[in-house]
Nucleic acid binder design. Sequence first.
DNA 1: CTACGTGCAAACCGTTTGCGAGTCC
DNA 2: GGACTCGCAAACGGTTTGCACGTAG
Lengths: 141, 141
Amino acid sequence: MSQTIEDICNKKGVKLTDQRKVIAKVLSESKEVYGESDHPDVDELYQRVSKLDSKISIATIYRTVKLFEESGILTKHDFKGGKARYETLVESHHDHLIDIKTGEIIEFVDEEIEKLQKRVAEKYGYKLVDHKLELYGIKKK
Amino acid sequence: MSQTIEDICNKKGVKLTDQRKVIAKVLSESKEVYGESDHPDVDELYQRVSKLDSKISIATIYRTVKLFEESGILTKHDFKGGKARYETLVESHHDHLIDIKTGEIIEFVDEEIEKLQKRVAEKYGYKLVDHKLELYGIKKK
DNA sequence: CTACGTGCAAACCGTTTGCGAGTCC
DNA sequence: GGACTCGCAAACGGTTTGCACGTAG
């Protein structure tokens, strides 16, 4: 049922080169290997990819990541700290709760907030096409 | 009642040099001159400042903007597009609705969303210390 | 004299790009 | 052959920083 990155590439006519296959593999393994809330930046991806094929350049990572983003495989996040971070797109949309101490990320969905956002946009005469909600918190002991 | 940027600097022990006074002036005039939803980036600030004193370097703008941010005078936003944009801190918190066509920014507050955010954080055992909500929309005709 | 602020230019860092070489059809 | 992809190194753009020179106390 769930389609692989390779499936999506085929469907969209994106050529699957060896390098892209390696990157796709790293991406699809991300969540399993590195935890559910894995949001690697390009540098991290580069390092993970390098273990499988040390010949792949960081420029290719950048190009592929952009390509995958345009194909709807990845989403890009500009969290605090300059570096863009990526995650594989899942069918269900979610927002992020970020631990300001550890950087740990928790994904969540809140239907009520979603609805309210739409309503706010409409109140100002806009059609909501996208949104970003980030909560920053400290873990209670 | 409302304190000026200079007041805040005095209170915090931030030395008010000539350059900083000019930058403070530009900032406090921002909303009046350029509209309520003025969120200039460093480059824009530099240009506005240059009109008053062309000797002030862009490095000083960067340093002052960072200083003011730390003093709670400005807030920094990392909207889409690489450049950081700033706005003078107002007592009432608000979020942003951004027109993806024109870049126009509408500020809004929604108490209900605020409350829900707090609740979500708590659900995961976190104390909410900050948040960012950006809505991206298209104007309806 | 000491501490700090500034202007300038160089460095920095994440990201993009031009180019020559390679690959697939 | 033509279109595309890659690795490399250079370029880019926003931001920071080292340094020499003020300037204030």
